[in-house]
Amino acid sequence: MRDNVLMREALREALDEEMARDERVFLMGEDIADPMGGSYKITLGLSTKYGKHRVRNTPISEIAIVGAGVGAAITGMRPVAEIMYVDFLEVAMDQVVSQAAKIRYMSGGQLSVPLVIRCQGGPGRSAAAQHSQMLEAWFFHVPGLKVVMPSTPYDAKGLLKAAIRDDNPVIFFEQNGLYNTRGPVPDPGEDYTVPLGKADIKREGKDVTIVAYAQMTLFALQAAEQLAKEDGVEAEVVDLRTVSPWDKETVLRSFRKTGALVVAHQAVRQGGVGAEIAATVYEEALDLVDVEIARVGAKFAPTPFAPHLERYVIPGKDEIVAAVRTTLERGGRFGAVGQAAAQRAGAV
């Protein structure tokens, strides 16, 4: 085990190891071959190692990248198609939504589509309205797709390897703001996977459940530390890791323990993944008398360019802290965790 591996390295190792393990695995996308090695260098060195027939540069043709991925996947290959930004998947939505996601179904279970669509993106870099969207809810809404959004290098590598071995189309959404984060990862060649569809409790707590994924998980952990220090509140942070299908069981178990839920993501709040989780938890926990549920998400606007405007629209740690305080205060729960904290919450 190495304790300080960059997420971008962990992702490259996953691709490298799966290509070595299975000759049906190949990569295609814009600018992914050497010397460029991908816009974010995730595939750097792989075309040199495996050849440009297995690490294929494509034209700027998102429909063809996904469509050819579908065609190759249903005829015996295991393609990993890279779309440079998740925003660009909009161009190829038919191939993602009405082809990849539905072919198994429309064929009556005859065909499988073992296709991974790697994409990246997310806010925080003044990339403005067309290069920083969090579009996971679009894909979350589509039966037949899996949506994976890791938050740590360990999970990123294990989930990508699992996604490549999965027989379903997987949107593997890497959040750009995490590429340079570091964390423990097993040694190269030490084969491990992280199962799709399983959430991970990144921090245990008894007072409130914070459900997050991707970079928001890191903000949730920071928020939890602040809440523990300032309010004496112990938050449990559940990292979904796989957004669809989401791990209802783990979320509900945590919620039944804490009785309070804050779902946090950087995608717009309206129609977001958080809405579905909040509604489901509410429906499933009707037997609990005192339940408190809140959502954190971006304001209903495109991502603005200027840094201060972007920060205003996109939530982070502070918004999670505020939501937890409001939620607990509303539920009258601060009595359980300290009067001082309740007073502070009232000021929020």
């Binding site: 297995r54 996904v66 469509g67 050819a68 579908v70 065609g71 190759a72 005829t75 290959m77 082809q99």
Partner: peptide, 14 residues
């Protein structure tokens, strides 16, 4: 059309 291209790519790679 692109799906057939992908099937062609699969043929070429296999």
């Amino acid at each position: 059309i692109p799906i057939a291209a992908g099937a062609g790519l699969s043929i070429q790679l296999r």
